[in-house]
Design a protein around this nucleic acid. Structure first.
Lengths: 148, 148
DNA sequence: AGCATAATTTACCTAATTATCCTTTTATCA
DNA sequence: TGATAAAAGGATAATTAGGTAAATTATGCT
């Protein structure tokens, strides 16, 4: 609670491992192994992301999946919306029914601005940012100087 | 997702309706009705809050429940911890495993400070603040001037 | 003492999320 | 054409949060 769903986390990690439209596609199986996401669950998740227009997929021998757009043009908010639906951010921090701008609970104003801050951050953070983080993590042993 | 659990919301609403140690105790049934929390569920919830030392309860004819301390001395953080356990705030916003101060995900620093802000707000916000909000809401029709 | 009453305990039910398995469809290769 | 390889799709299990119902225990009333 008080984080994105773990499914959204899966989606972000998997997508961060994929190439963009001009790159080569990867097999779901390999993506699952590389990111430690349950393979069958990822396969289901992929469908949602394809429907949402975030991924392109191709069946058959030379099949696989890749990003529909460059990673630098995909925001984390888009992924969260695609996976959890547009109502993933609930209104009241305290779960109170009667909580609006007019009749605010004691945490309302705080949470309203915090929520906007979170949304802005997820909009500002691109998939490429996560991909860079993951790559740096994985290449930790190989090079310590080259990349930044 | 990305809010406290609805169970914590229930606990806060129910407790906001209760009197302090010097006040009179109320029946779970009545509290449930007044706050629109499912009665049987509230009964179970009360146990947790009693165990956590936030409520005092008494059985039998003159039984009921009341706050163990004045509402002004109970923080929302205490309630959240009592209901959802101390790990209710998950580490990584994105659900990434490898996310620490040393190897931060792109949202890490942001989420770290946001989390602290949320924790501080829940510490600063007392149950009495919620109670005042609820009372003002309920007495809206009766008086428009007297209270504040 | 015996009854009424209210919290406590126990067990079970429901729905959503997370996860797996197996078949079907589509695409390529030999 | 047939074998093969991969995503798509359907059915189903496991887990957890949320919720219900009934038996049990404690307390006060008569």
């Amino acid at each position: 609670m008080l984080s994105l769903s773990s499914t959204t986390g899966y989606a972000i990690q998997a997508m961060a491992y994929l190439d963009g439209p001009d790159g080569e596609s990867k097999f779901i199986r390999d993506v699952a192994e590389a990111t430690a996401v349950p393979p069958a669950y990822l396969a289901k998740l992929v469908q949602k992301l394809v429907e949402a227009g975030l991924l392109d997929s191709k069946r058959g021998y030379w099949g696989g999946i890749k990003l529909a757009r460059p990673a630098s043009q995909i925001t984390l908010l888009e992924i969260a919306n695609a996976v959890d639906g547009p109502r993933w951010m609930r209104q009241c921090l305290l779960g109170l029914e009667e909580c609006s701008d007019a009749r605010a609970c004691p945490a309302h104003e705080f949470w309203k601005s915090a929520r906007n801050l979170i949304r802005d951050t997820l909009t500002r953070t691109k998939l490429s940012d996560v991909a860079e983080f993951e790559q740096r993590k994985n290449s930790k042993l190989k090079s310590t100087i080259i990349d930044d």
